[in-house]
Design a protein around this nucleic acid. Structure first.
Length: 413
RNA sequence: GCGGUGGUAGCUCAGCUGGUAGAGCAGGGGACUGUGGAUCCCCGGGUCGCGGGUUCGAGUCCCGUCCACCGCCCCA
């Protein structure tokens, strides 16, 4: 045998149940988003590397070590997208979607790439479905984005807690940062190695550290919510008021910070206890559009990890019952079965025509193996009589029916 | 990127201190020539992840490497 070629590390096939669950998640989320009047945007997979370094932040792990970057044959410095928001914002600016003076609601879906250590629920190619609202600072939008996330989880029957926080804005964050830095510096010696490094680069992340000692220090740290400016405080209060009005259960987590630099004001995460991982996350990014060369435009959005959600889907919607049409005999019977199968399919029935040869017993074993619910045998007797035995494999009950009667019986199951 | 565990048949795994592979399930056929999941009988199938080393001899020991899983970092 020739050398077997395998998938590249961190890349994989989705098939069978996994593929079905994946599709179920995507279809469910799409339906919800379209009910909220989001429009789909189909984005390129490859963008200039600069788009991501500028949006996500130079000092983030994603940019520092996780991007799939390469130079194309024209010498362009490009990358496989590690997330979707940057692309949407780029498209928003490039296509001048701000021109009509309203806000835009867009959703996308597709592969994202991050060169990380693979694990269950974490691959180098993974899929997200996300939505963005560009051009509004109204806290109603923040509440609705969180509402959508909750609705996704509820519809998929996935338990997850919703955590929210506010990261403030350009006005209030610097003061907080300073206070935090001052507090953390006074405890520098007690922090873990990573956090000592973070102190310089991204002190906010220390709040999120999992090391016990750091957690303790973090728990005493000044809270961003105590430092919010009037505007941010009002905004945050409004968001919470709307969430309460919608009956959404959430917990405030003053230590919730996100890994991407572009967030401001509202941030949130939906965390699955079972997975121990975040399944949906998002927030507001009021400066990103401007930083990427567009007009000042407040915006927000979220992204859902499709595989992570799929991993938590326990039950799939019922499929149409499968009918196995079994030709039994020679060429005449095969041709008859071939046409009979078409008639059933034309009526919306899911039909497999058996290509299997041999004894009738083997045909029924085959029917079981492929999970058929019904069988129809097309043999010599049937051609003579014009009636076919429709058998329900679960109840083992069999009735001789005409083709029309079979169609009538199966059509609406 | 760091640490840990593991890779033997399609699947789950056994294989003691080195002596050139085995079970269960699955698969194919038959008992049973137009009716299935049971039972019995028979059968096929493996470069023991890959490469190197030690050895008369390596699935077994050593080194490297790849892959998977778990934890960390980080994240959807």
């Amino acid at each position: 045998m020739a050398e077997k070629i395998k998938t590249v590390r961190g890349f994989r096939d989705l098939l069978g149940e996994e593929a079905k669950k994946y599709r179920f998640v995507v279809n469910t989320v799409r339906k919800i988003l379209e009910r909220y009047n989001f429009e789909e945007i189909i984005l390129p997979t490859v963008e200039y590397t600069k788009l991501f370094t500028r949006s996500i932040g130079e000092a983030t792990d994603i940019v520092e070590k996780e991007m799939f970057t390469f130079t194309d044959k024209g010498g362009r410095d490009v990358a496989l997208r590690p997330e979707g928001t940057a692309g949407v914002v780029r498209a928003y600016i490039e296509n001048k979607l701000y021109a009509d003076g309203t806000y835009k609601k867009l959703y996308y879906e597709g592969s994202m790439f991050r060169h990380e250590r693979p694990q269950k629920g974490r691959y180098r190619e993974f899929h997200q479905i996300g939505a963005e609202i560009l051009g509004t600072s109204n806290p109603l939008a923040d509440a609705e984005v969180i509402k959508i996330s909750e609705e996704i989880l509820k519809t998929l029957k996935i338990p997850a807690r919703i955590e929210i926080n506010s990261l403030g804005c350009k006005k209030c964050r610097p003061a907080y940062r300073e206070a935090l830095l001052e507090y953390l510096s006074s405890h520098k010696e007690e922090l873990c190695e990573d956090c000592q490094r973070r102190l310089e680069r991204n002190p906010l992340r220390i709040l999120d550290c999992k090391v016990e000692g750091c957690k303790l220090i973090a728990s005493q740290a000044p809270k961003i919510t105590d430092y919010l400016c009037e505007e941010c405080k009002t905004h945050y209060e409004s968001v919470k008021k709307y969430l309460n009005a919608l009956g959404i259960k959430y917990t405030e987590n003053p230590h919730l910070v996100r890994g991407l630099d572009y967030y401001s004001k509202t941030v949130f995460e939906c965390v699955s206890e079972e997975l121990g991982k975040t399944v949906i996350a998002g927030g507001r990014y009021d400066y990103l559009v401007e930083e990427l060369g567009g007009p000042p435009t407040p915006a927000l959005g979220f992204a859902a990890g499709i595989e992570r959600l799929a991993l938590l889907v326990k039950e799939l919607p019922k499929e149409k019952p499968l009918v196995l049409v079994i030709p039994f005999g020679g060429e005449n019977e095969k041709i008859h079965a071939l046409k009979l199968a078409q008639t059933l399919r034309k009526n919306g029935i899911r039909v497999e025509l058996s290509y299997r040869e041999g004894k009738i017993r083997k045909q029924f074993e085959f029917a079981n193996k492929i999970g058929a619910h019904f069988t129809v045998v097309v043999g010599e007797n049937e051609l003579k009589e014009g009636k076919y035995p429709l058998k329900n494999l679960l109840t083992r009950e069999e009735r001789k029916l005409t083709l029309e009667e079979i169609v009538e019986t199966l059509k609406n199951l």
